[in-house]
Structure formats: C-alpha cells, structure tokens
Design a protein around this nucleic acid. Structure first.
Length: 435
RNA sequence: GGAGAGAUGGCCGAGUGGUCGAAGGCGCCCGCCUGCUAAGCGGGUGUAGGAUCAAAAGUCCUACCCAGGGUUCAAAUCCCUGUCUCUCCGCCA
C-alpha cells in the first residue's frame, strides 16, 4: 500500500507513475472518496468527543447526587447521530481501503521507463552459452531419456502441469535445495549469513494481503474454502509475514531469511504457455531469500540480494544474464526488480530463473512491519526485499540442458558432487529397471 | 473431537462499569553520584489518526487492553460468538 500523505502531497507524481506502469487507476475518484471518508471520520470523532464529555459529566453528577435527566436526553440524541455517522464512516472506509489496496507500487527513479518486456534493460551477462556439436535436446527429452522425469504418470494422478522426478533426478532436486540453502546460510565475510526458516505452506488471507497477492491476484492462488486457507505461491508470503505487526529494533536490521518451500500457482493466465517441461508447473520448489532492511540501505541490499542469487548460477557454471525490469513490466508490489535469466540451449534464449525485488515500504505498510530507530527512537516502516535463489525446477532444467552430452548423459556440476553421493554424471545405462 | 483455564503496554503483572492508555515491577532512554563497573538517586518511556503551529516542541481530541457483535448515558471490566494459547481425555503422521 502506498503512503497516503505522499499521494495527497503530490497526486500528479503518482498519476505519472501509474501511467508509466500502464496501470489504469482512477486516482481522482479515489482521492475524492478518501476526502469524503476523512470528513466523515472527523465528524464521527467530534460526536464521540461530545458524548464522552457528557458521560463523564453524568458520572460526576451521580456521585454528587445531582439530577442527570437532561444530560441523558442529550446523550441519547448524540448517540443516534453517532450511529448514523459511524455507518457512513465505515462504508466509506471500506470502499476507500479496497481501492488503496489495488494501487500498485511506485517505480523507483532508477527503473527504466518502458512499455513491456521488450524494453527491459540488460545489466550484465555472465558465462558463455555452451556450444554443442549436436542439436541440444530440450530438458524433458533429456530427462525422459535418462528415465528421471515422468510427466505422463504425473498427469494421470494430478492433471496437467505436474511432474515426477525419479532416481537420480529426484536426488538432483534434493541436492540443489541443500546446495542452495548451504550457500546462503553458510558463513560469509563482512555480512551476516541468512537464517534458515521452514514455514507453513498454507496461509490465511491476511498474510496474502500483507505481501500484495490479495486482493488483486486471487485467481492465481489455490484456495481451500473449507478452511479459508491458501497454498502459498511463494515462500515470500510466510517468510515476510514472520514479523507481521511487530516493531523491530534498528540493531536487528537487516533481517535475512532463507527458506526452501514448495510453491503453488494456478497459472490461470498462462494457458498454452510452456506446456511442456518443468518451466511452468502448478507445484514447484524454490529457495527464497527475504530481507527486512532499513530504508537507507534497501537499494544497495537489492544489489546484494541479486548477487546472492547469481552466485548459485556461477557456482553451478550456468550462463545467465541480469535484466532490470522496465516500468511497464514491473510486478504490482515492486518498486524495482532484477530478473535473473538462465541460458536454455534448446530454446536458444535466456529464461527467468529468479526475480529479485525491492518493495520498499509497500509490503511493510500492509504488513505493519516497523522498526525503532536507534538515534531518535522513532518508529518507521522497514523495507522488504526478496528474490528466488533459485527456482529449483528451472535450475534442474537448465542443468539437464546445458550439461547434456551427445550420448544423452548429463554431467553433474562439480559443486553438486558432494550432494550427489559422489555421482558425477547421469547416464542412460543407469536407467532403473522399472519401465 | 470432548472438558476446563486463559489472552492487558518490549516483558512480568494489577485492574471495583465512570476520574484507566491503564497501578507496581523489570527492561530501555536522559541526568546525578561513586576514579571504571555494579549498586544507588531523580526524571522520562505504547501505537495510529486528527486539531492547533510557518515548522518543531508543547497542548488538546479520537481510537486501540485477542477479534467481532451486544447491554449501558458510560465497557479493559458485564453478556454472546469466533480465533489463538495452555491443561486433561480421545484420535492421529
């Protein structure tokens, strides 16, 4: 949610920001509604003030043994006015709140202005795409050839966009999760390591409201109506909500969390996209990094966070690039986002494997996560950041594709050897006897 | 799932329907004192919104004692519902 005072002070700047995002926002209508709410609220407060004063008076008179009849009559009149005023106030507040919650974040000044994903700006490119003496196969063919990936049986038990990993494939997935978590939680020089969190996969609607998935993106979420719980679309939700409603100490910042979770997305708007392979699944694994930062350092922390994500790719030897999303492609809650894209040989292009964002105080305001400054003891909203490091399924796909050999084997990146029980390659002859 | 107990400020904990944003203690902040530390002494110390003000400070108003309803001129306090926590029983990975 945006800072009301900031918008009131300069509505034109906000309107410009929404235009840059191509978000259709009736800001004038909202501000009009907000103004009416504000007045209704003041009126209600004035009535309460009067009522409270009279009630106190009654108390005094009763103790003094004086008559109170006239006061009673007046209070009853005021109470009727309060009730009417309260009804109006609450209705306006409900409408106003609803619309404030649908305002997207304002892009940071450093975000490139652009229409859509074609105008995202490449920041850097690391590693060279491998050259093959043969036509590289897509990862689902590599996986099928090795007998470590099964989409057909997954579809039979769960429908489209699910997958099953077998044998060395399942092991590889587990290895990636452990490797990523170990990288982030291991000791590092100069800055604190990430603290690992293991969190619920089902959350209450208010948690999704806090991080911005609700109310706008309800159709993207799996919902269990019997209990009004939602499956998390990303670990960002439970992890960011860890400190919801709390006031931290400045000395506690930055808070750095790393969490592995499964993630669940309906992919409602993605019909026909990436229908084959591991790229777009209803359920996928991800290791997520979350920062709670002071406002002053959140932008440099976004750089750190992004570097922590790309370090994984470098240690796996996977070529990637980092792009800065332009205003037209920025996510709803984000003020600035770097996407990390990994090279997929079969597609001949880079595909998103991580998205690292600075939400500034947008989520913190919804979640009411604040901190007390050391100097003046003032309470202030934190800045929240998060990024995948990395999406496990896409990393696995990238390994199958980038590390494939002509005979259908896959060479396991060296960094993963300790996690694979010494296995250095997955070969067709290792295929299990099960058909 | 059944029975019972509870939910108050950063923490512990008191609270008779009115003078309670809430005693007391701890912690924290400022100052004093002792060569340092501890102890001691004095003062301060919730959040949000609003009014006043050029601004700040200050002062004042409104709301918040788990949440939502209700009773009442008046609710932290009484009633109802829900949520969560704890104890016991049952079931269970």
């Amino acid at each position: 949610m945006l800072d009301r005072n900031r918008i009131l002070k300069d509505p034109e700047a906000a309107a410009r920001a929404f235009r840059a995002r191509h978000a259709e926002i009736d800001l004038e209508g909202l501000l009009d509604l907000d103004g009416r709410w504000f007045e209704a609220n003041r009126e209600w407060e004035r009535l309460r003030e009067r009522r409270n004063a009279l009630s106190a008076e009654i108390g005094k008179k009763k103790r003094a043994g004086e008559p109170t009849e006239e006061l009673y009559a007046e209070v009853l009149r005021i109470n009727a006015a309060i009730e009417a005023s309260d009804t109006l106030r609450r209705e306006l507040d409900r409408q106003r709140e609803e619309r404030w919650l649908l305002l997207p974040n304002i892009p940071d000044a450093s975000v490139p202005v652009g229409q859509d994903e074609t105008e995202n700006v490449e920041i850097r490119r690391v590693g060279d795409p491998p050259s093959f003496s043969f036509t590289p196969r897509p990862h689902w063919e590599v996986g099928a050839g090795l007998g470590i990936l099964d989409f057909d049986r997954a579809a039979r038990m769960s429908g489209a966009r699910f997958s099953i990993l077998l044998g060395a494939g399942a092991r590889l997935e587990r290895a990636l999760i452990s490797f990523m978590l170990d990288c982030h939680t291991g000791p590092r020089e100069g800055e604190p390591a990430y603290r690992e969190l293991s969190v619920p996969y089902m959350v209450l609607p208010e948690s999704l409201l806090a991080t911005g998935q609700l109310p706008k993106f309800r159709e993207e979420l799996f919902h269990m109506p019997a209990d009004d719980l939602f499956l998390i679309p990303t670990a960002e939700v439970p992890v960011t909500n860890y400190y919801r409603g709390e006031i931290l100490d400045e000395a506690d910042l930055p808070v750095k969390f790393a969490a592995y979770t499964a993630c669940f997305r309906r992919e409602a708007g993605a019909a026909g996209k990436d229908t084959r392979g591991l790229i777009r699944q209803h359920q996928f694994d991800k290791v997520e990094l979350v920062w709670l930062s002071s406002p002053e350092s959140s932008m440099e922390n976004l750089e750190r966070l992004t570097r922590d994500a790309t370090t994984i790719l470098e240690r796996l030897g996977l070529p990637y690039r980092v792009i800065s999303l332009c205003t037209g492609d920025l996510g709803f809650s984000s003020a600035k986002t770097y996407d990390v894209e990994v090279w997929l040989p079969s597609q001949g292009r880079y595909r998103e494997i991580s998205s690292c964002s600075n939400f500034m105080d947008f989520q913190a305001r919804r979640a009411q996560i604040r901190y007390r400054r050391t100097g003046d003891r003032k309470v202030q909203l934190v800045h929240t950041l998060n990024g995948s490091a990395l999406a496990v399924g896409r990393t696995l796909a990238a390994i199958l594709e980038n590390c494939q050999t002509e005979d259908g084997s896959v060479l396991i990146p060296e960094a993963l050897h300790p996690y694979m029980g010494g296995l250095t390659r997955i070969s067709p002859e290792m295929v299990s006897p099960h058909p």
